[in-house]
């Protein structure tokens, strides 16, 4: 059963890491793994979001469903989400999703008493669990905290009131986008750019400048000293082929050779704030592992052999 191992050891190199932003390189693997990671980050990393709203009083201009929808889309801090239960699998509450293991309760009570428009925002939501609260987007460096009021839910005029109870539950982005922790997850193949120096030298400075400017992004530049074209930022290249077309138009095909490296990816991950971008990546890897475990469990069983026959054996490396 022991075959040649095709296992590769992917490497990750973190380039930039902020609370809600991460940029890293993923090397020594292929597009399927990179894409699996991306898909899991978007759709399968769990977070907590408001799922049930009971409205007691709503005399605002927006109707109940409207407000419920807006509440659902407010990101909540979800560090707890991985260890929390889905309310559908919760034993403690028979799946009605109202127990402390699978849900968090929120209250909102606002009434406008002045002639000024009152903004009801995510900061007015009171959580029963201090670890699950609406994400605070305010810049910690900013001194003026009165300016920052969180995500606006509705605006009230004098005499209007909003009173409601909301239940937040664990969920995944596949079910509803409100549970997706990812604002942006994208990757690109790392480009490898080779400038044909000999051919480049046949160009005049003006032609070089023209060629450099033909790229919509600043990939190349001219060294002010040596007047040589050099690659400033290879990752700014967006595979638009503009420079290659330009080179052909100038009668110098092969001036530059650009290859997308098939085994290195540059990931950009932006989080909604529900979980930290770094945690998002780690959780995604964890979930990916769990999914693979599910596959491995079934490979031992006899049914797999019956079901897949030769294919099953092949899958096990036979």
């Amino acid at each position: 059963m022991e075959g040649a191992s095709y296992a590769r050891m992917p490497r990750v190199k973190i380039r930039e890491l902020k609370d809600d932003y991460a940029k890293f390189e993923l090397r020594d693997t292929d597009a399927s793994i990179a894409n699996a990671l991306r898909r899991v980050m978007i759709a399968e990393v769990p977070t907590i979001a408001i799922d049930l709203v009971e409205i007691e009083v709503n005399s605002s201009v927006l109707n109940d469903e409207f407000i419920a929808h807006r509440l659902g889309l407010i990101p909540l801090t979800s560090e707890r989400a991985m260890s929390m239960r889905f309310s559908r699998d919760c034993d403690a509450c028979d799946g009605d999703g109202q127990c402390e293991f699978c849900s968090v309760e929120f209250h909102l009570r606002v009434k406008c008493m002045t002639d000024q428009t009152l903004d009801v925002s995510s900061k007015d939501l009171y959580s029963s669990d201090h670890s699950v609260v609406p994400v605070d987007f305010s810049d910690p460096a900013a001194t003026d905290s009165s300016e920052n009021r969180g995500v606006i839910i509705v605006k009230l005029r004098r005499g209007q009131e909003l009173r409601l109870r909301a239940i937040a539950r664990k969920g995944i982005g596949k079910d509803h986008a409100k549970w997706s922790p990812a604002a942006t997850v994208t990757f690109m193949y790392e480009p490898e750019i080779h400038i044909n120096e000999d051919l480049m030298e046949t160009l005049t400075l003006e032609e070089k400048r023209e060629w450099v400017d033909s790229s919509p992004t600043r990939v190349f530049d001219i060294d002010p000293v040596t007047q040589q074209v050099m690659v400033v930022d290879s990752e700014a290249y967006s595979y638009d082929d503009e420079v290659i077309k330009k080179a052909e138009a100038m009668g110098k095909p092969g001036l530059v050779e650009i290859i997308a490296k098939q085994d290195s990816f540059i990931f950009t991950v932006e989080s909604t704030g529900a979980i930290k971008a770094s945690q998002l990546v780690l959780n995604a890897i964890e979930i990916l592992k769990q999914k693979l475990d599910a596959v491995r469990l079934s490979e031992d069983t006899v049914e797999a052999d019956d079901q897949f026959g030769e294919l099953g054996a092949h899958m096990r490396g036979g």
Binding site: A31, S32, A34, N35, A36, R39, T186, Y189, A260
Partner: peptide, 8 residues
């Protein structure tokens, strides 16, 4: 890039 395969 294709969202299904991850290939351009």
């Amino acid at each position: 890039y294709s969202g299904i395969t991850g290939c351009p």
